[in-house]
Design a protein around this nucleic acid. Sequence first.
DNA 1: CGAAGGTATTTGTTTAAACAAGTACTTTTT
DNA 2: AAAAAGTACTTGTTTAAACAAATACCTTCG
Lengths: 148, 148
Amino acid sequence: MKIEDEIKQKKFLNAHQKAVINLLYTVNWLQGKHQHLFKSFNITPQQFNILRILKGQHPNSISATEIKSRMLDRNSDVSRLLDRLVSKNVIVRKACPTDKRASDVNLTDAGLELLRTIDKKQSELDNILSLSDEEALQLSNLLDKSRG
Amino acid sequence: MKIEDEIKQKKFLNAHQKAVINLLYTVNWLQGKHQHLFKSFNITPQQFNILRILKGQHPNSISATEIKSRMLDRNSDVSRLLDRLVSKNVIVRKACPTDKRASDVNLTDAGLELLRTIDKKQSELDNILSLSDEEALQLSNLLDKSRG
DNA sequence: CGAAGGTATTTGTTTAAACAAGTACTTTTT
DNA sequence: AAAAAGTACTTGTTTAAACAAATACCTTCG
């Protein structure tokens, strides 16, 4: 369905404005799908984002600051996001031996297990976009270019 | 800058996954820009979204339900969003004469004035994306297709 | 060395999102 | 016409964002 019909706005000032609104609308739709999947595992998309980053690093640990720099939303309150993940027993925070200000964050066995479980449903996520591989690539390239 | 470098993740499972992550990342970036602009007017992007919908309708009124159906984020708590706009004196809520459950929402003069002021800065928004008109259109079409 | 400045993270506070449940109608159905 | 079902919100509550400020530690430089 075209964006004009989705939000019942027939006219846009120009192609840029239309693309911006379409981006905002589409990601909202996308986040809804993500939330639905993650909710069954009792985590939020942002929490999954952190788990994904930790997995890429596993079995090495990583600091909160480094996590923040890799997050999709860098304005996040990483400190309290980590608190929530600790209370779910999927990550652990240890004091960094070389820098007492910093913390080393790691996945727990339970965290790894959770990621494995989610991975099994990952296919549902990967095929959310109704695009061919070539179109997906084209979209990604346009997005890279969009950010200037 | 490519998404790989932005989030320091070199490998993606496939083109779909990369496009999904790029979408989430790009919109986050985009919302940051929007928030920065709207903050100077003391409103949130969602509040602006509602004002924009009301403007498209002006001088006619529109119900809360209809506003919700046109919003970019349809899960919003429209009721309290409208409360906040009322308390800022930019909209008014009247009882709908034909349906006592419904409310008629309208922009106030102050609301129109606010929109005019924002419009003057609109050009900053319209050129956020570093894309040609053709590319913007192409992006919009890919997004429409993405949602299936 | 010791002040000055930078970094990593936590904490506080205000505001908004998320989800469920309630209220007051209106419309449909029997 | 009265019960049942649907609609248009509103309210309550829990959880998370947003933004500013504080804390504790590291680094640098005179």
